[in-house]
Design a protein around this nucleic acid. Structure first.
Lengths: 138, 138
DNA sequence: ATTAATTTGGTACTTTAGTATGAGTCTCAA
DNA sequence: TTGAGACTCATACTAAAGTACCAAATTAAT
């Protein structure tokens, strides 16, 4: 959470700098209007892309990417999404626990909650449903 | 693919319109520079977010398709591929047996053989590996 | 500041999953 | 026709997975 605040803080600072520079260019008349607007558009476009990507939970180990925003819509918590991701990579409860530094009991609790939220009977079905819901991407 | 092209086409048209409007505003002096730049920045920011999301969500089809030829290359038999397919859809051994009109014991045998052939410890891992091997599509 | 939600973890239990082993049937090619 | 491979099924077992409780610590939100 703190990370997010810092990230957005830096972002806003950067935005103000860019706006200030844009205005300076505009007043001094060094650059054409089209160019200034284009640069501004491009920069903000990429910032949008970047922010959007930051919101995706990425698992480095098996390259399975999860749509965190979509997950939240469905009602899955951050931790549950992490468990779901590891689960879909084929990890056992014990292995998931080791990966996330929690006990197997905790993982079982998370898995149970995931099954209820996705209305699945088994973990394999949960994975299948998550894929149908476009929650898991490859 | 066609969809993507259409989408980007519309996007580019929209961008040009916006740039033109921005320039008009700038020349006519109806709005302040800050406002114009801010609006432009905001719009492009959201376009960036939108594009990023569109690129993330690609898979529409959820039906499980299996590459039988590829499966045979790996050494999986026809029946094993059928079991693997049902397995990846989230079915239990019992349910797979009902689907294929065989006993649960038979399914267990098939599953065990699949695990050996794919070098997997669990069925979830087998599904994950099958996906990596492009054996399971979508 | 105080609810509300999340995360963590435990015990005890039932249900599935998976292994090991053996064996019968069927098909197809040598 | 004989043997290999595929498919079938069973028993007995061990290992995971999953459920149903409970409870505490942490974090987010109002």
């Amino acid at each position: 959470m703190t990370k997010t605040i810092v990230r957005f803080g830096l972002l806003i600072v950067a935005l103000f700098c860019l706006l200030a520079i844009s205005k300076y260019w505009w007043i001094s008349g060094d650059l054409s209007v089209e160019l200034i607007l284009s640069i501004l558009a491009l920069v903000f476009f990429w910032i949008g892309v970047w922010i959007s990507k930051q919101n995706a939970v990425k698992q480095q180990n098996n390259s399975i990417v999860l749509d965190a925003l979509k997950g939240k819509e469905i009602g899955l918590t951050t931790r549950e999404l992490e468990v779901l991701s590891a689960m879909s990579a084929g990890a056992s409860n014990k292995e998931i626990g080791e990966q996330l530094f929690v006990s197997e009991s905790t993982v079982k609790t998370h898995v149970s909650n995931i099954l209820v939220k996705l209305n699945a009977k088994r973990r394999t079905q949960a994975i299948s449903l998550a894929r149908e819901l476009q929650l898991l991407k490859k």
